[in-house]
Nucleic acid binder design. Structure first.
Lengths: 210, 210
DNA sequence: GAATGTGAAAATATTCACAGCG
DNA sequence: CGCTGTGAATATTTTCACATTC
């Protein structure tokens, strides 16, 4: 999506699989196949999306990708924990543009409850279930210390969220019906240390998003 | 490493590949093969690490993994950008225990320079190259806005870091000799949205660390 | 001419299954 | 016996290559 956007920004109407691939450090066939596979997920028929001899219409392709990845919907998320990471998330801002909105903020600490953070008033963690339901939030963001994370995850699950973005450095035990994505700083740092070490022995590159 | 640690905490001396696999939601053979492959990276001979009929010695295995992943070394990192994410990283703390230490903090904003954040005094971004060299830092952490990220990456590269942990929402163009790990909030959220959407159509679980 | 979509081929990864060891 | 280490068997992913379309 980012590369597509940058092509659009450059004023391009269409882009070829190989141009995209070059920008991403991939093989053109990968892009074509991934696109075909991804779009095949779109329930019914969406038909071929590229045009022989021309490439892909950037705007059209972006729309289809948004659709199939769920980025076309509006996702309501609740943030649990407003320590440093929580506040960083609130300040991050880049969510709205992507269809994500933080609709409530919770914290277990008495001292935090009632405080204002941006446009949010911090609520007591006790009210989490009720609040999530009444707001219709579908995503929970866990930004609490490790010790509290599992219990928050259980509360979120009980409240009926469909997915959890977990910043606590642990694997959550969660129902099969819930999607969990972990963002873990120490894992990322260790990944980097490993990549650096590996690069010393073998002269090949490694890059990835965690 | 986390699962191993938790087995140790539970008082276990040894652990079998299948016990580890169960904790990680994997197949025992995967664990054995990964371990064999990972330890094979250890330049010379390290010999078999598990014991037939018993399993793996947790402490020994952890040591070997640390060694091969570079977690046994002490990594010095410089943090560039002390907005919300930067400050969250500083407050995170969990680094020292893992062999990572933030040895300097930089920011481009005049108003920030000279301020104290924890035990660090924020330095002017202009001094980055000199400072990185004199401190012998090997990792750079980019926590600046997207617009500034590439230029910071170039500075870090010029200063001779071996790897970059990038929190800016973009792909950095970097020399092949530098390892880059990206941590991207909007990508993680989109991943979650996709997983949720996918779970609605296909009844399979998806979980991952980003 | 340029570039897609996709079978077929090659490369990787995962799983099975079992000989061998303590 | 319980469990590792690993060949062999599967399955999946990646790449190639080309007929087809605009």
């Amino acid at each position: 999506m980012r590369e597509l956007q940058s092509f659009v920004t450059q004023g391009r109407q269409t882009v070829s699989s190989s141009a995209l691939a070059a920008a991403l450090g991939l093989n053109g066939a990968v892009v074509r196949k991934d696109l075909a596979l991804l779009l095949a997920r779109m329930g019914g028929r969406s038909g071929p999306i590229g045009q022989s001899g021309v490439g892909y219409d950037c705007a059209l392709l972006m729309g289809r990708i948004r659709e199939v990845t769920g980025s076309d919907r509006q996702w309501k998320a609740v943030l649990v924990g407003c320590g440093n990471i929580g506040r960083a998330l609130l300040a991050y801002g880049g969510f709205d543009g992507q269809g994500f909105e933080i609709v409530a903020v919770f914290d277990a600490k008495r001292a935090m409850v009632g405080k204002r953070l941006g446009k949010h008033r911090v609520q007591a963690a006790v009210d989490l279930r009720r609040s999530v339901r009444s707001l219709g939030a579908t995503i929970g963001i866990i930004a609490v210390p490790r010790e509290a994370a599992q219990s928050v995850a259980d509360d979120l699950t009980g409240a009926g969220v469909q997915g959890i973005l977990n910043f606590a450095p642990m694997r959550l035990a969660a129902s099969e019906t819930i999607s969990v994505v972990n963002v873990d700083l120490s894992v990322s740092l260790q990944q980097l240390a490993f990549d650096i070490s590996a690069a010393r022995s073998k002269p090949s590159v490694r890059e990835g998003t965690r």
